[in-house]
Design a protein around this nucleic acid. Structure first.
Lengths: 228, 228
DNA sequence: TCCAAAGTTCGGTGAAGATCGAAGTATAGC
DNA sequence: GCTATACTTCGATCTTCACCGAACTTTGGA
């Protein structure tokens, strides 16, 4: 295609203040959605869409589609290096390091993502039940194994009823604070509601933060993380 | 002054094609004059002047005034690093390494600079007569020593007559292909004319190239470089 | 089927800035 | 003094592009 993109083309991509803000927000390595990046740059989603298309075309960022979201991240380590160097040149040594993902540490730990659990704990959960052999993650598809079916049915999950819904039982969701997958789908929803039902945690009414009780977190870890 | 220059400001400086061409031309480390840079970028000198002012203000290049010329070079190694990285990102691995200074190798070796000798040989000459103790180079001023006066008068130079002219006897001139100094002034002029008089070299009528004869170069080296 | 949310495309506006002609300043050497 | 060269400044033009409103597409979930 563009066999010899001039260095001025690349530079002018970062040369726009809005695009620069987006790139810096992505410098943390976390994938961010289009609307989050629009918010970060203080522009409307239309403008952001145009900017993001240019950055993708210029191979500075990569996009990963997930449902109705599009998550963006920097394309490779060298782009990050370029940004670091520019930051260095900008302010002497002022590496103002980048608020990416949720600014709130509580949000990073555990939060609602639509109707399921997200954040550090959710990522840990996903990897735990995967390594336990409850989930099979292949080709972007997540499937419950026979072993996993038994496990969750013993916990009281009505898998048959979930299966009747159009919504998939298991789905992976890219976690934007951890940049790794967590579990979505009906089962993901059930796990979260089960958390509330057991009173291990409850949702903060004014935010998406999910606060675990001390005892609840212990039992949650015992239940899901013990087998690692 | 500009306490926090955004990275987009720096990037947009390189984001202009004309400025990018100039920067790349400077990547070789050699200082180039404003008009040479204008030629490199295929723009008029007015436009180049505007661009160069912006690059200087943005601390990407430094300027060194010399008579009616202004020589520019990259400001520091980090700017060069930035350009290298951009080049790398531009074309995969296409480090198209930069034609700086005279494209013609003969021009790099020896050429006319106004009325005196420039190029690799001229730089070598300057350093040779300096280390021989013929010239004293201090605070940007070049002066002929007593030893040097004897040396050149023995060669037939009429230093007294040169001193009567308004033009300084010795002056250093930044060599744009070697980025080091060579000798200008009346003495520099005399050396060149003496070269022609002795038939050690002659100027190509269609360019600024000075072509040494094989024998002439030997005798020139014997005369000026032997004491090193 | 219907709605809401995420994102894109299109069209028009407005501002930034690259470019050059013309005129002005500074320097070198006569 | 003069002339030529190197470079800058001013002014006008013209292109590019960021921005947003409005309408459209896609997806998720009831």
């Amino acid at each position: 295609m563009h066999n010899k993109p001039n260095i001025s083309q690349i530079s002018s991509l970062i040369g726009d203040p809005a695009r620069a803000k987006m790139m810096i927000a992505l410098l943390g390595g976390k994938a961010l959605s289009a609307s989050e990046l629009a918010l970060e740059a203080n522009i409307t989603s239309q403008t952001a869409s145009s900017h993001l298309a240019k950055l993708v075309k210029g191979s500075l960022i990569a996009v990963q589609k997930q449902g109705r979201h599009r998550y963006f991240q920097l394309k490779g380590q060298e782009v990050a290096k370029l940004l670091e160097l520019l930051l260095h040149l900008s302010s002497g040594v002022e590496h103002s390091h980048v608020k990416t993902g949720p600014r709130n540490p509580e949000l990073r730990t555990a939060r609602v993502c639509y109707d399921h659990l997200a954040g550090r704990i959710a990522v840990q959960l996903f990897e735990s039940v995967s390594s336990n052999g409850y989930l099979a993650f292949r080709d972007g598809q997540v499937n419950l194994t026979a072993k996993g079916r038994t496990f969750f049915e013993n916990l009281g999950a009505d898998l048959e009823q979930m299966r009747t819904k159009r919504r998939p039982l298991c789905r992976s969701c890219l976690d934007w604070s951890e940049r790794r997958h967590h579990l979505a789908g009906s089962l993901g929803q059930w796990i979260l509601s089960d958390l509330f039902k057991k009173r291990w945690a409850k949702k903060d009414p004014d935010s998406r933060v999910i606060g675990f009780t001390k005892k609840g977190l212990d039992q949650f870890s015992e239940l899901y993380f013990s087998g690692i």
